[in-house]
Design a protein around this nucleic acid. Structure first.
Length: 340
DNA sequence: CATGCGTGGGC
DNA sequence: TGCCCAAGCAT
C-alpha cells in the first residue's frame, strides 16, 4: 500500500527539519508551551530571521510566562520595538497575565483560542506543537502547499474553506505538531511562493498542480489595492542632551509605542496639526517609510535648546536613545537627526 | 467579509 | 526600484 501524504511528509521532516531555537527535534517530546506560544506570536506575518534575535532576548529576560506576566507593559512594548504589528505586544502581556493567573497554558485548541492574540492559526499551532493535539494548522505556507497539492483554483481569500478542508483531510492523528511544522518548512524552503523547487519536493508525485504543469500559478490571489503616499511631520525637540518623547495612543498605528511628537499624520490622511512648540524649526531631512496600507514621507523638524512642551511626555537622554524602544519609523528619524 | 496594522528581505 | 511576500489577529 502506498504511503500517505502525511507519512511521506513526516519522513521528509525527520531528515530535513530546520533547526530553530523554539523547536524540539522531530519526534521528540513537545517543547515548553511558553516558548512555542511566544515564537508563534512573534512569527505572525514575520520572517524567521527577524524573529530569532527577539526570541533570544525575550526568553533571556523573561524565561517563563510568570516572569513575562510580571513585567511592566512598557518594558515589553520597548523590547518589541522594531518587530512590527505592535498590538501583538499588547496582547502578549494580556495573554501572559491571563495564563499566569490560571496557572498555565490551556492544553486544548478551543481554550487556547480564547486567549488574547491567539486566532485560529496560533491556537491550532500551539495545541498541536506544544500539546500534541490533532489540530488543523493553516498558515500562508499551508495554504500555498495545499492549494498546489490539490490544484485549488479559487482565489484567496475565498478559497480558505476549501483549503482548510483539504488540509484537514491530510492531517494525521499522530505527530500533528511535527506535521504542521513539516508543512511550514516545506512551504518555506521547497514549495516557495515564486519558484517552487519541485525536484526536491517529497510530495511532487502527489501534487496536482505539478501534474498540471504550472504550480507557481497557485494559489490565485485577489489583486491588491494601491498604496497611498502620505505626508507628515515629526518634531525633534532637544535640550540638555535629551529629546522629548511621547507615547502614542493605545490603539491604531504604532499604538502604545514611544514616539516623537508629530502633526497627526495617519494611514488615512496627511498631518495638519500645529507643532507642539512655537518658534523656528529646522528641517533635518525626510524619512521614507512603507507601512502595510500607506507609504509615508516624514519631514523631521528640529528645535534645540527648546522649552518643555505642554502635555505628557518625557525627556529621554540621547546617549540612551537605543533603549527608548522607538518603532523603526522614529528610529530612522533619530538616526537622521543625529547624523546631521 | 473587508479593513487596518510593521518591517525587512528577495528578486 | 517597486512590488511581493512572511508561522495572522481584531474588529
Amino acid at each position: 500500500m502506498a504511503a500517505t501524504v502525511s507519512e511521506t511528509l513526516l519522513a521528509w521532516y525527520d531528515r530535513h527539519a530546520r533547526d530553530l531555537p523554539w523547536r524540539a527535534r522531530p519526534g521528540a517530546a513537545p517543547p515548553d508551551p511558553y516558548r512555542v506560544w511566544l515564537s508563534e506570536v512573534m512569527l505572525q506575518q514575520t520572517t524567521v530571521a527577524a524573529v530569532k534575535p527577539y526570541f533570544a532576548a525575550f526568553t533571556a529576560r523573561w524565561p517563563d510566562v510568570e516572569a513575562l506576566a510580571a513585567a511592566p507593559e512598557d518594558d515589553v512594548m520597548a523590547a518589541w520595538a522594531g518587530l512590527g504589528y505592535y498590538s501583538r505586544a499588547r496582547n502578549l502581556v494580556k495573554c501572559a497575565r491571563a495564563v499566569a493567573e490560571r496557572g498555565g497554558f490551556p492544553a486544548t485548541e478551543a481554550d487556547l483560542r480564547e486567549l488574547p492574540g491567539l486566532g485560529a492559526y496560533t491556537a491550532a499551532a500551539v495545541a498541536a506543537i506544544a500539546f500534541g493535539q490533532r489540530a488543523v494548522v493553516v498558515d500562508a505556507n499551508v495554504e500555498r502547499v495545499v492549494a498546489r497539492l490539490f490544484a485549488i483554483e479559487d482565489p484567496l481569500p475565498g478559497a480558505r474553506k476549501a483549503i482548510r478542508s483539504a488540509a484537514d483531510s491530510i492531517t494525521p492523528d499522530r505527530r500533528a505538531g511535527d506535521f504542521a511544522q513539516a508543512m511550514m518548512d516545506l512551504g518555506a524552503t521547497v514549495c516557495t511562493a515564486r519558484d517552487p523547487r519541485c525536484l526536491l519536493c517529497p510530495l511532487a508525485q502527489a501534487c496536482a498542480a505539478r501534474a498540471a504543469g504550472d504550480p507557481a500559478r497557485l494559489p490565485v490571489k485577489a489583486p491588491r489595492k494601491p498604496k497611498p503616499l502620505r505626508q507628515g511631520r515629526a518634531f525633534w525637540i532637544e535640550r540638555d542632551g535629551a529629546v522629548w518623547l511621547v507615547r502614542r495612543a493605545g490603539t491604531g498605528m504604532l499604538g502604545g509605542m514611544r514616539a516623537l511628537p508629530d502633526d497627526g499624520w495617519s494611514a488615512q490622511g496627511d498631518g495638519s496639526a500645529d507643532p507642539p512648540l512655537a518658534g523656528a524649526w529646522e528641517c533635518a531631512g525626510v524619512v521614507r517609510h512603507v507601512f502595510t496600507h500607506a507609504a509615508l514621507e516624514l519631514s523631521v523638524l528640529v528645535q534645540r535648546d527648546a522649552p518643555q512642551p505642554a502635555g505628557p511626555g518625557e525627556w529621554w537622554p540621547l546617549d540612551r536613545i537605543e533603549e527608548a524602544g522607538l518603532p523603526t519609523l522614529f528610529a530612522k528619524a533619530a538616526r537622521l537627526v543625529r547624523a546631521s
